[in-house]
Design a protein around this nucleic acid. Sequence first.
DNA 1: GTTTGATTTTTGATTGTTCAAAATTTTACT
DNA 2: AGTAAAATTTTGAACAATCAAAAATCAAAC
Lengths: 219, 219
Amino acid sequence: MATSTVEDYIKCILLEEQRLPGVRVSMGHVGSSLGVTPGTVTSMMKALANGGLVSYEPYSGVLLTRAGAQLAAHVLRRHRLVELFLVQVLGMDWSDVHAEADRLEHAISDQVLAKIDAMLGSPEADPHGDPIPDASGRVPELVVESLAHGLPGERLRVARVLDQSADFLRYVDQQGLRPGAQLRLLGRDEAADVLTLEVGGETLRIGLRPAARILVERV
Amino acid sequence: MATSTVEDYIKCILLEEQRLPGVRVSMGHVGSSLGVTPGTVTSMMKALANGGLVSYEPYSGVLLTRAGAQLAAHVLRRHRLVELFLVQVLGMDWSDVHAEADRLEHAISDQVLAKIDAMLGSPEADPHGDPIPDASGRVPELVVESLAHGLPGERLRVARVLDQSADFLRYVDQQGLRPGAQLRLLGRDEAADVLTLEVGGETLRIGLRPAARILVERV
DNA sequence: GTTTGATTTTTGATTGTTCAAAATTTTACT
DNA sequence: AGTAAAATTTTGAACAATCAAAAATCAAAC
C-alpha cells in the first residue's frame, strides 16, 4: 500500500494537472508545494514511475498514470469529505479544516469514509466549493469562471474559493463571499486593479488578484 | 514531536504498566504486541530513553518517565475518544473500531479532539468500558474485578471488556455481555472450568478463561 | 549561436525504522 | 552448582525519505 508520503506527492500532482490539464507537472512545483528540495522530488518521481503511478520524463516533468490518478482521486475524496465533515458535524471553522484534513486524509479507512459520506448525503463539494470525487474517482465538473473575469451588471453566485490559506479564507468569510453567496458586479476598474461589488446589501471593493482566486457561476 | 511509531511504543508500554503496576515492561512483550523483533525494541528503547520518555534498564525492561506517561495518556485519550466517537456518532460496530482508532489516534489534533470530547459530553469510558484519560492525562480509576472471580448468587454489571479482538467482542456482543449489561452468577464449576450465569433472561455458560477478560462491578 | 540564469539531476550523506542472525546474559531446571 | 532454555543485546544491513551541494541540461536573451 502507498505510504502517506506517496499519497501527498500523488495528490499534489493531481491538483496541478487539474489546474493545467495535459501539461506535465514540474519538479519545482511539487517541491515547493510539498516543502521538499528538487532533488528529493526527482528521486521520488523515479520511485513512483517504478511503481506505475506516474510517467516520468526527465527534464520535462510527470503525468499521473491511470492507477496514479485513481489513487490521487481517492486521497482527494478523503480530504474533501473530511473537510466538510469537520465543518458540518464538528462545527469547525472552514479556515482551519484544510490543515486538519491534510493529516486525516491518510488515516481514514474506506469503511469510515463510507459512513461519513452517507451522513453528509454524498455531497458534491467541500466547504470551499471544491468538487468531491465520487467513490470510483470521477470528479463532478462544475461550470464556473473566475470572479476576476466578471463584467459590470452581472449577477453571480460564489461557487468555489481556490486559495485555501487560512488568512484568505477568513477575509473571504468576513466579506460574506462564502460559496453560495449571491453578488452583483457593480464596477470594474482595470487601472486601479479593483472590482466593485454588492453582496448582502453591502458594497465592497476587491483587487483583481484575489478576485481571480474566487470562482463564480452566473445566476 | 513524537512520530506515530514512537506513540505506538509508548502507548503499548503504558497499557502494560497499567496491567502490572510497578513492573518493568519486557522487550518481548512490546515486540510481540507491536509485531516487531526484540532487537528492534531494544534499539527503540535506547532512543526513547535518550529522549527522556522511558527509563531503560538493560535485561530488565522499561518504565515510562513522567513525560512518557503524559504522552502515552494523551495517545490513549485520543484512541478511546475516537473509538467512542466512531460508535456513537458514525454508528460503527464496536468490534471494528479498535483497528480504526489505532490509525486515527496519530492524526487527530488537540482542536479536533476537544470538539469530539465536547460532542460526547466528556465521557469517562470508551465502548469497551476502558477508562478515558482526561485532558491532563489522569485516568479515572474504576473499582472493578474480573467476572472469573465472581461467586454464585452475586448480581453484577459488566464494566469493561479487556480483550479487544474483533472475534471476542462479537462473541461478547452476541451473549449480551456488553458494558452496562446486568447479570446474575448462578454457578461456578472449577473442575469443568465453567461459569453459569443469567443475563437478559437467558442462561449461558462461559469458560473461566474468557470470563477473566470481562470486568464487572457489584450491583 | 553563444552565454547566462533557472531548473533538474546526480552524488554522497543522514535519520528513522526495521530485520536476521550471532553473541550475550538471565532464568529456570535438574 | 552447572547446564539448558529463554530472553535480550549487538551487529551489520536494508529501505524510505530527506538534504546540501556539485554537475548537467534546458530556455531565453542578447
